[in-house]
Write a protein that binds this DNA or RNA. Structure first.
Lengths: 144, 144
DNA sequence: TTAAATCATATTGTAATTATAGGAATTGTG
DNA sequence: CACAATTCCTATAATTACAATATGATTTAA
C-alpha cells in the first residue's frame, strides 16, 4: 500500500514551486535538478496539475510554471488524489467506486472506513503551506 | 494506494475461522464458498498464515484449519503486514526499508510519518476480536 | 531567426497482481 | 488395505500498473 512516485513527485514539485516562488515563472528543468527527478517524467506530472488549474504555465523562453493559488489553498489530499487517483484503501469505501456487490454492510468494511477516515484526516488537513513552514523550520536548524 | 486482495482475503479468511470456530477444523472449501473466493487462491494465502503460526492445519479427511490463538490476539495490522507486506505509505518511513538516500530529513517525510502513524493507529488497535464483535452486532439487526 | 521552454503522445521494460493448474503428500474411514 | 478427502507445493499465465524514456510539435521572448 504505497504512494507511487507520481504522487510523491507531484508533492515535491508543488512544494518546490511554493518555496521558490518569486513572481517569475519557474522552469521545470530547475525543479528537476533540485529535486533530482527526470525532467521528462515531471512534464507528464505537471501536465495533470496544469490541466486541473493547480499551476499556470508560461510558454517560450523565460517560461515556466507558477502556483495558481497560495500554498495554504492546496491540501496534500488534493494534490495526491489528482495525480495518484483515489487514496481509499479499498474500493468499497470509495465514494467514486462501485459499492460492494455482495454484502449490504460487510464487517471488514467498517474497518476500511476507519482506515479511510484516518488517512483523510491527515491528507485533508495538511496543506502545501504547512509543508513550506516545516521546511523553513528545518532550514533554521542548518543556519546554526 | 490500495490494500490488495491478498490482504483483504486474508482478513476475511481469519474472520471466517474466528466466527465459525467450534473446536473442529474448518475446511478451506467451506471458507471459499462462504466468502466467495477461489479455493486455490485461498490455499496460497493460508499457507503464509500457517507458516507464521497464525493458524494450525490438520491434514487428511475431516482436516482443515483452526486459529492458533484467540481472535483478540491478532491485530488487523499483523494479518495485513504478513500477507500484504509493509503498510508504510512510502519506503523512507519504513523501519525495514532503506532510508532516504538524498536528504537527512526531507520535508515531505514529516508528512509521510504522520500518515504512517494514522494508518498504524487503526490497524494496530483493531483486532480480529473486534471484527467478530462488529459482526455479531450486525447480525442482531437481521434477527428482527 | 533562433533557441528555450512547454505540450502531446507513443513506446518500453519491469514488476506486481490475481489468479489458475497439476499433482504430491497426508490421513481418517470403510 | 484401498480410497477419498483434505492440505501442501510449485509452476505458469494473463492482465495491469508503474516508472520512466523518446520523439517531436508548438509557442514565444530576445
Amino acid at each position: 500500500m504505497r504512494i507511487s512516485t507520481k504522487g510523491r513527485y507531484a508533492l515535491r514539485l508543488m512544494l518546490d514551486l511554493a518555496v521558490h516562488a518569486s513572481g517569475d515563472p519557474i522552469r521545470l528543468k530547475d525543479v528537476a535538478r533540485r529535486q533530482n527527478i527526470s525532467e521528462k517524467y515531471l512534464e507528464q506530472i505537471i501536465s495533470v496539475l496544469n490541466k486541473a488549474g493547480y499551476v499556470r504555465s508560461i510558454r517560450g523562453p523565460q517560461g515556466g510554471y507558477v502556483l495558481q493559488k497560495a500554498p495554504e489553498e492546496y491540501t496534500v489530499g488534493m494534490i495526491l488524489r489528482l495525480t495518484e487517483g483515489s487514496l481509499c484503501p479499498v474500493e468499497c469505501v470509495d465514494d467514486a467506486g462501485t459499492p460492494c456487490a455482495s454484502e449490504k454492510e460487510c464487517t471488514t468494511r467498517l474497518l476500511w472506513k476507519k482506515l479511510n477516515d484516518a488517512i483523510n484526516g491527515v491528507v485533508d488537513t495538511v496543506t502545501l503551506g504547512d509543508l513550506v513552514d516545516w521546511r523553513a523550520q528545518q532550514a533554521d536548524h542548518y543556519v546554526i
